[in-house]
Design a protein around this nucleic acid. Structure first.
Lengths: 132, 132
DNA sequence: GGCAATATACGAAATCATTCGTTGATGGTG
DNA sequence: CACCATCAACGAATGATTTCGTATATTGCC
């Protein structure tokens, strides 16, 4: 019997999400890289970034390569999957479970700027309509 | 000079959002009504609901009518406005500012069930396209 | 070898969210 | 009137998040 993840990865907190965005965007990073990207100006200190990455490692939110002196961290959860989790949660808790309502709100508040985006959405709608 | 709200209302926390949903759904409620609706089974005690409503009152998230012995609380922020805030925040922090990406994700993960919903979305798209 | 720079690890403080227990007031009922 | 149910108001305990200071180890360089 193979090992399996018996519990879900914890929700990333606000700061943790910021760090995941860095790792998703830049790929595996050292603490220093994360710190400079995120806290370049006016932000928290280096050890704060370090501590956060250690905590995230404990939670399974990031993976760590400690074969070098400066450990290299990479995201332990995919952007795709995380976006899906946050989205589903918001639909449930803020929009009473209606994804359509959320979509209508989103399109109303932030209308797609480009025709490209509009087209993409229409295409997806057609696929859904066709039962794909 | 009229008084003006110099700072925004704080973000509702998880529990606070649950309570707001009750107030939005049922209209003004006493503590007991909120408690029974939300914590009917297996939930927290009465004083927890009371405390939360007091805290929310302190934050301006709810308004209070204390002319009767059992105070009556009502939402101090609209559902509409709150949904918009959460939506905008999620777009920024989870979807890198791209509302279209979020809409595509939402439609992909939770395809509209009814033709009615599909039609509504298409109609809105057309209005956007027409520059309305 | 010894020093400076840079790393990790760890503990602790500050803040916030959530829950509960207790106290004292108020209102109705027998 | 006396009792009991119900109410608001605290204060406090708990746990989580975020931040930082300090200690300690490692690396490269003179």
């Amino acid at each position: 019997m193979t090992a399996r993840r018996s519990v879900e990865t914890p929700w990333p907190t606000d700061v943790e999400l910021d760090i995941l965005q860095v790792l998703w965007g830049r790929g595996p990073c050292t603490v220093r890289e994360v710190h400079e990207t995120l806290y370049a100006h006016e932000g928290a200190g280096y050890t704060t970034a370090l501590k956060m990455l250690q905590i995230m490692h404990g939670k399974g939110l990031v993976e760590r390569d400690d074969s070098q002196r400066a450990h290299v961290y990479k995201a332990g959860v995919t952007k795709q999957r995380t976006q899906k989790r946050f989205l589903a949660d918001m639909v449930n808790r803020v929009f009473n479970g209606s994804a359509s309502q959320m979509v209508l709100h989103a399109l109303g508040s932030h209308p797609p700027a480009s025709r490209e985006e509009l087209k993409e959405i229409r295409t997806l709608l057609s696929r859904i309509e066709a039962g794909d």
